[in-house]
């Protein structure tokens, strides 16, 4: 019913004009996220990428959990698609609190909207605070090594850094939920990196894809690849609780998570022989 929609939107506008909404201490603005960000991304997830998510029941209905996923696609579209997918497919409509690089929070506008969407800096104090508050936290341990890798390395998981995410899970007793995302690698196939321009613009890399920067703004349209997202079985961390500072325990668990994701990526790719099917 269009009028009901208009009323709902009118109420939203009135709340924004009065400042009558709540923001948590990280700057997460659920009112803005649910009424603006997620509706804007939904067509991209459903129509453009035809995303399919399996295993969403592995995410608990409430309480803390750390979602760990592979990262790809030149810009972090996979992170917001994962957040939208979990929100829409999970019966409890949970918000995924993403952990982002400091570069994001250094950038005007981007940093502002990242916080409003519930993201915060990828650092142990923030991750542990969110987990202790019972939130669902999302992290991409490959970081820029994952998003900024050349197209020929697609679906090859990069190094998992120092495993800070594992110690955060161990310290808070949160289960780790491995997630494998297939599809993001093909949206902006990275064939080059103009390093001097990246340095000039103070960004981690300046991407060259088959369409960008040649086609200008049109080059920013992602290719319509087919996406499959599989949420894996939770890995309980309670038994390793004392190992949060033990590099051997941390690296071991990080490897286990990495192997699980890599293996699932292989299985998903077999299910999707044509990236643009």
């Amino acid at each position: 019913m269009p009028s009901a929609h208009m009323n709902k939107f009118g109420d939203f506008l009135r709340r924004r004009l009065d400042g009558d909404y709540e923001v948590d201490e990280f700057g997460f603005d659920p009112d803005m996220t649910d009424n603006v960000f997620l509706p804007m991304l939904r067509p991209l997830y459903r129509k453009w990428f035809r995303a399919e998510m399996t295993g969403v029941e592995n995410i608990p209905a409430d309480g803390k959990a750390l979602v760990v996923a592979n990262h790809s696609g030149t810009i972090a579209v996979d992170a917001v698609m994962l957040a939208l997918g979990i929100h829409d497919e999970h019966p409890a409509s949970r918000h995924l609190r993403l952990l982002g690089a400091d570069f994001v929070f250094d950038t005007p506008i981007l940093g502002e909207y990242a916080r409003k969407s519930g993201a915060t800096l990828a650092c142990n104090p923030d991750a542990e605070r969110l987990l202790n508050a019972g939130e669902l936290v999302g992290v991409f341990p490959e970081g820029f090594k994952g998003v900024g890798k050349p197209f020929r390395d697609r679906y090859k998981l990069q190094r998992f850094g120092r495993g800070g995410f594992v110690s955060a899970a161990l310290r808070t007793g949160a289960p780790i939920i491995p997630v494998s995302i297939v599809g993001a690698e093909e949206i902006y196939p990275l064939i080059g990196d103009i390093k001097p321009l990246a340095r000039l613009l103070k960004i981690p890399y300046f991407p060259v894809t088959p369409t960008f920067p040649w086609l200008g703004p049109l080059g920013a349209v992602p290719l319509p690849s087919k996406w499959l997202i599989e949420v894996g079985k939770p890995i309980e961390t309670a038994e390793y609780a004392d190992g949060a500072d033990d590099p051997a325990v941390v690296f071991n668990l990080a490897d286990q998570v990495r192997e699980t994701i890599q293996q699932t990526l292989g299985e998903l790719l077999l299910k999707r022989p044509d990236p643009f099917a």
């Binding site: 990280f26 400091d102 570069f103 250094d106 915060t120 800096l121 650092c123 923030d126 605070r129």
Partner: peptide
Amino acid sequence: SSRDPAIFTEDT
């Protein structure tokens, strides 16, 4: 700094 945690404790 953009590298600061979102919330400061006395030990940050």
